[in-house]
Amino acid sequence: MRPVHIAGFAQLPHGLVDNRHDEGGMVRAVTAAALQEAGLGRDDVGFTCSGSSDYIMGRPFSFVMALDGIGAWPPIRESHVEMDGAWALYEAWVRLQHGDVDVALVYCFGKSSLGDVEAIYALQNDPYTIAPLGLDPMTAAALQARQLIARGLLTEREIAETVVNARRNGQSNAEVPAIETRSVEQLLAQPLVRDPLRAHDAARFTDGAAAIVLTVGGGGPRIAGIDHRIDSMNLGVRDLTLCNSARIAAERAGAHNIDAAELYVPYASQEKLLCAAMGLDPGVQINPSGGTLVAETPMVAGLVRIGEAARLIRSGAKRTLAHATAGPCLQQNLVCVLEEAP
């Protein structure tokens, strides 16, 4: 494998509502900043890959206008995934293995404020059987949490502790909207909305965009391993107390000796399960940025985890892990392990 480094990372400050930027404006801001951090210009880029969702943006072909933001002229080698930007980074990483291209630009954007993200995700279910029932992702997560609690693998207090930690960590993250710290007792006093889950257990949706510049060689945090896997969407055939896809992806990405991890946690009840599935030791620092419970920009939050994990390397960590997910109950998972450049 050719050594691929994260040479630049930028994100728009995630806002609860972004009324200023359209797709092109968002993308311009983050790609210019990421290239600047990498010390590269857009002419240096040999492959570009983006991630976004038409349903999130409320219109078909939403990625087309985003191309304005990168100035695709002269024409560029380019591809797009209808997935989180973390998967766009995966495609770029694959493309860099070919040998003819040494710099790749990855970007993604999403605006949760335009529509009802939970209602959109509910439509991801099997359209013939489950979707007509209106199963929303939080209800699916609650079914999973219930099983975890019943098996003694999770307590309601642990769910609350996850939220407490995320909010505490989020205080020092200038890129996310302010969020109030809470004690476990305060959280547990809140009403249940999808028993055993409370409103604050869900990730907080935001608007934003992010970009990463990948280079072959050079400095910066290096991708030690990256892999992604999917489970069945059929909740009935899965053991929801396990997360096989995250386990396999972590094994293949080399999730060992990890100092800190940035995990895409849609619901607080899923963090402990993810750590167990990926074999993360109790000493691993989880979501120093505050993570998705503080700011989840759809289609962006996964790439931001990789960017944040890279920042941790830059500030002294030896080996970090980033995770992205999609689908109900952590159906699809991507794991990217980063390490110091040798």
Binding site: S53, D54, Y55, F61, F63, V64, E78, S79, H80, V81, E82, M83, W87, Y90, E91, I120, Y121, L123, Q124, N125, D126, P127, A131, D227, H228, R229, I230, D231, S232, M233, N234, N244, S245, I248, A326, G327, P328, Q331, Q332
Partner: peptide, 27 residues
């Protein structure tokens, strides 16, 4: 088709469970 990210519910039919599945959209 009215289904966001249909690769998720199609994972079984595609024999993709436990494997990587990747979703491309370039118009």
């Amino acid at each position: 088709e009215g289904v966001p990210n249909p690769e998720l519910f199609l994972a079984d039919a595609l024999g993709a469970v436990g494997k990587p599945i990747f979703r491309v959209h370039t118009a």
